[in-house]
Each structure stands twice: as C-alpha cells, then as structure tokens.
C-alpha cells in the first residue's frame, strides 16, 4: 500500500501538485487520470523518488519514503518496478539481457536461475523466442511487454506504469491492460497506472484518482465515475460522442 499525504511540488514557482492526498491499495490497479499537464507524471516521479516533493509525505506500507537519502531508499527501490511510456529498454542490450538486468544487479542467482526467471517473465507477458532480439527489432506492443517483464523480474511489491497504452492500437492496449491487471492480482502488487485511455479506466481500474490542475479533483471506483456529476471529470471522460452516448445508456 502506498499513501500520499498532502504532497506538493513546484518547479520555478509554478505549482504542479498541490496538497494531493490519496492511498493506493495492494492487489489493486490504481489509475491516475487527468489531462495533459495535470501533474500525473510528476506525481508518479515523486512517488518513485525521481523527483523530490516540496511538502507532504509518501509512505510505502506505512514506512516513510520521501525525505530519505539515496542510500536509505535503496531497499525500497529494489521492490519497485516501473514501465515507462516509451518502454525505456536499454538499446545496447538484448531482450534477455534487459529482463535479466535487475537480476544481475541485485540478486545472487546463478546464470541458469536467472535465465529461468527471464523465460518465466517473458512467457508471463506472452513473449517467446525473442530473447536474442534487440529493442529496435520489436514492435511498440512487444517493447511494452518486455518492459513489463523487466519490471516484474525482481518480484516487486510496487508496480508503476506511465501511460502503458500510449502509441498502441486498441487491441494491443487491451492486451497490455489485461496483463497489468492479471499480474497485479497474481503477485498481489500495489499497481499505479497513469493513463489517458478510457478503455483502461473501464476495463481494469479498481480505483481512479482524477487530477485537475495539480489538485486531487475526484476519487472513486468505475461505477462511481459513470454516475458522477462532477463537471471536469465528465468533460474529460465523456469528451467524445461515443463516450457521451455510453453515459446516456
């Protein structure tokens, strides 16, 4: 479980996040939605420690994370997996080496054990016989799946996904969404997903946090979102004609 308590962040006097408080539960897919520039990515970077918050507190299973030094954060980091928007696979490494990378860094497993774990993770994301390919030889959807495999390789307790569906066709998006949902439940991970994709919201969101101009504007479940009369969230979610028609039904 991850708790955010009144976190704020500004860059050069410009407020990006303002007093955001929320909690994300274990074994659930927690979605953070909001328009471009609403502060989703900055909030995720604050949560993983890439950006330091100005005020507030971030707790991982009740233990303080924000305010710790690089050395003190190390045990937490080894429990965090992250899937970046573009995959962020290491160009100079093959698929197998990419997935094995965190295992090489933080475990004392033998090469055979590491290969076994890599194959398990790749199989789990429905990828096989791609071990020796380079990232440049993969499609967008495959890159995302390798990124998920790399993120889950060291058995993380927390999984962060920054717009995992961006640039993917609707069918592949659903595959990635379902994969995130299945992995979250199977390994009982605290998963937080930043997304613009309304299909994801409807398909896999256990909890939804809506950010607007850096503030927590709305929070609830998928059922709640369909019934809410909050203007900003309705404008955001039901922006298209199709979505408006669904809302009416």
């Amino acid at each position: 479980m991850i708790d955010l308590k009144n976190i704020s962040k500004s860059f050069n006097g410009r407020v990006i996040l303002e007093n955001v408080t929320s909690s994300f539960e274990k074994g659930h897919v927690n979605l953070v939605i909001g328009g471009s520039g609403s502060g989703k990515t900055v909030m995720m970077k604050c949560m993983v420690g890439l950006v330091d918050i100005d005020e507030g507190e971030i707790l991982y299973d009740g233990k303080p994370f924000s305010g710790l030094s690089r050395k003190e954060r190390k045990p937490f980091r080894q429990e965090i997996g992250m899937v970046f928007q573009g995959g962020a696979l290491f160009d100079s490494l093959t698929v197998e080496q990419n997935v094995m990378f965190p295992l090489n860094m933080f475990t004392r497993l033998s090469l055979e054990e590491k290969k076994e774990r890599v194959n398990f993770c790749l199989k789990r994301v429905n990828l096989e016989n791609v071990n020796n390919l380079g990232p440049s030889e993969l499609s967008g959807g495959m890159k995302k799946r390798v990124a998920i495999a790399r993120a889950i390789a060291p058995n993380p307790n927390y999984l962060f996904c920054d717009e995992p569906n961006s640039g993917l066709d609707p069918r592949t998006s659903i595959v990635i969404d379902n994969l995130i949902k299945e992995i979250t439940e199977e390994f009982s991970i605290t998963t937080i997903v930043n997304t613009h994709d309304m299909n994801s919201v409807m398909e896999i969101g256990d909890k939804i946090l809506f950010l607007f101009e850096g503030k927590k504007w709305w929070e609830g479940s998928v059922d709640d979102i369909l019934r809410t009369d909050n203007k900003e969230i309705n404008d955001f979610i039901f922006a298209s004609k199709l979505a408006k028609a669904i809302k009416k039904v």
């Binding site: 970077k45 970046f84 928007q85 573009g86 962020a88 990378f101």
Partner: peptide, 18 residues
Amino acid sequence: GTMRVTEQIDALEIMGIN
C-alpha cells in the same frame, strides 16, 4: 543523451543504480 531523453537513465535510477 539519448538514454536520458528516452528515460533509460530514469529506469536505472528507479532500480537504485547509480
């Protein structure tokens, strides 16, 4: 520079690697 703009360096940092 390419590793920086494609978030590969962020990926290293998140894993706790200097």
